[in-house]
């Protein structure tokens, strides 16, 4: 109990239980699913949709306040942990900016659009980038299930490369997996941690 690795384990356990509600999975999964359908149905507007997905962050924080805090309690993690989350958010915003620029370029110049989005290797590049991002989230947040999502994404991308199906298949599959597993975790979380009476929550 007294050595540093045990203390790190305590912090990790606290952090994992805080994210054991599946809300992060549901938010990312639903955001990706909406994005996939917009790219599919309204391809000319897809880069606007990515920008709009930043709104999912407020959905996430709202759900944490509404569901997690009354059941698991309120916690502020260490500055090291908070910096990690900030870095992920910065990386996410940068990626959105890059995708937006690519989207704008593809619309302005159809030749660039064909080069970026219709090359034979596009699906593999998308698969590697997507898998890397999901694995990065898993590493930075110490949430190991994101490694599984990463493997699913890359696996479906490779299958789609060899058996040409729709280009969006990896995105659709991983978002559905995240959404379903997130809902399962949320159900488990709500069962495990019933809402406490207000006086008890405040310790009054």
């Amino acid at each position: 109990m007294t050595n540093n690795s045990k203390l790190q384990e305590i912090e990790r356990k606290a952090f994992i239980s805080y994210h054991g509600d599946g809300i992060l999975d549901i938010c990312i999964g639903s955001a990706l699913l909406v994005m996939a359908f917009f790219i599919w149905l309204l391809p000319e507007f897809w880069f606007f949709v990515i920008g709009g997905l930043i709104g999912w962050i407020s959905l996430y924080t709202g759900a944490k306040k509404l569901i997690t805090a009354p059941r698991l309690g309120y916690v502020e993690f260490s500055s090291v942990r908070r910096r990690r989350i900030q870095n992920i958010m910065i990386a996410g915003v940068l990626m959105l900016v890059v995708f937006n620029i690519l989207g704008v370029l593809a619309i302005i110049n159809p030749i660039i659009g064909i080069f970026i989005f219709e090359s034979a290797f596009t699906i593999l590049i998308v698969g590697i980038i997507g898998a890397f991002v999901l694995a990065l989230i898993g590493t930075m947040l110490n949430i190991r299930r994101f490694y599984s999502y990463s493997v699913v994404f890359l696996g479906v991308a490779v299958v789609t490369f060899f058996i040409p199906l729709i280009l969006l298949l990896p995105l659709i599959v991983v978002s559905i997996v995240m959404l379903v597993y997130g809902l399962f975790l949320l159900y488990q979380f709500v069962q495990m941690y019933p809402k406490e009476a207000r006086g008890e929550v405040t310790g009054a």
């Binding site: 698991l72 502020e76 993690f77 260490s78």
Partner: peptide
């Protein structure tokens, strides 16, 4: 290891 927590979080 945490900055601060409420009673409920510590109880859990």
């Amino acid at each position: 290891v945490l900055d601060r927590a409420d009673f409920l979080f510590l109880k859990r």
